[in-house]
Design a protein around this nucleic acid. Structure first.
Length: 300
DNA sequence: CACTTGACCTGTCCGC
DNA sequence: TGCGGACAGGTCAAGT
């Protein structure tokens, strides 16, 4: 679920609160999340490191660390979350009763943090100012990797164009599409080695906005449709970023609140509901092994 | 090359 | 109520 707009939303939010922070320590609850390093090696390498920058490439977050010069790469895959808990200032008055400290289930932890790890918390980072970053991941597909400069290059080498970059003009987009003329449009749009950052939601939405069926052979697209699709992809991604992403299922922003793009969805997750353009019921089929939503009347 | 299946996982939902 | 199965959908590997 986290696609480019969701990861970019997190990048912007975390950049504000994490750059300059020093990692005091960490805890790993599911070793697979940090493989191939052991949990202890992972924590040891991170401890004492300062976060100097947070970038994004495709759906990957890249945290630059100093002085090690390593990069912490984070992929949320389907259900990953990064939730930041700022330090809660100690409170006074009756709420400060020791009885509430680390108290019973549902109790507030005064001067601590709003939540204990959930059963889906796979790792926690503790910063020297007392704040924490939780990595939650229901399905355990997400990962955290500590990379040298070389291994980082290796990881990023195969990724295609950033769809919101200056280099992604419509002519470039056309060239990319023509690379595999016999493919279905959806397959090329999802191919991270060609275009980096689109996922199932924004592909279906972009196809609807262009009034094109996702299973169209790429070579059958007209120039006018390619231009329209190019504009639609950029417009939808930008709007979704502005809205903080799409919380269709698990995704939340770094403060735990959902993104605001769901009301803008025209086809994704609207199976059987009337098309917002023509009232025909939105149809869902399986294409390339993925749930694929479209309007049978509007899209050709 | 196009396309499918399975693997990695756990939760929700639906029909019986 | 529980139980089995489909489904969610990012990515890669392996097979047809």
């Amino acid at each position: 679920m986290p696609e480019l707009p969701e990861v970019e939303t997190l990048r912007r939010e975390l950049e504000r609160v994490l750059v300059g922070q020093i990692i005091k320590t960490g805890k790993v609850f599911w070793p697979g999340t940090v493989a191939p390093l052991s949990s202890s090696a992972f924590v040891k390498k991170l401890s004492g490191q300062k976060i100097t920058a947070i970038r994004r490439r495709a759906k990957i977050l890249l945290l630059s660390l100093s002085p090690s010069q390593l990069t912490l790469a984070i992929h949320l895959k389907l259900t990953g979350q990064l939730v930041y808990h700022p330090l809660q200032p100690p409170q006074r008055g009756r709420d400060n009763s020791p009885l509430l400290r680390g108290g019973a289930r549902g109790g507030v932890v005064i001067g601590g943090h709003p939540e204990d790890p959930t059963k889906h918390t796979r790792a926690i980072f503790h910063f020297t100012d007392g704040s924490q970053l939780y990595f939650n991941d229901l399905r355990k597909f997400g990962w955290l990797k500590l990379l040298s400069s070389n291994s980082k290059e290796g990881l990023l080498a195969r990724l295609g164009r950033e769809p919101l970059s200056k280099e992604f003009g419509w002519e470039t987009f056309k060239t990319i599409l023509q690379r595999y003329p016999n493919r279905r449009l959806k397959q090329t749009l999802l191919d991270q080695t060609l275009i980096a950052g689109l996922g199932n939601i924004y592909v279906d939405e972009s196809c609807f906005a262009t009034r094109v069926m996702p299973d169209r052979r790429v070579k059958k697209l007209t120039d006018s449709e390619i231009k329209k699709l190019h504009r639609a992809i950029q417009r939808i991604l930008k709007l979704a970023i502005r809205e903080g992403g799409t919380s269709a299922r698990n995704y939340v922003r770094s403060d735990g609140r959902p993104g605001g793009f769901v009301p803008y969805l025209k086809v994704y997750g609207r199976t059987g509901k009337p098309c917002k353009n023509c009232r025909a019921p939105i149809t869902k089929v399986k294409l390339l092994g993925r749930g694929t939503h479209f309007c049978p009347q509007c899209q050709k």
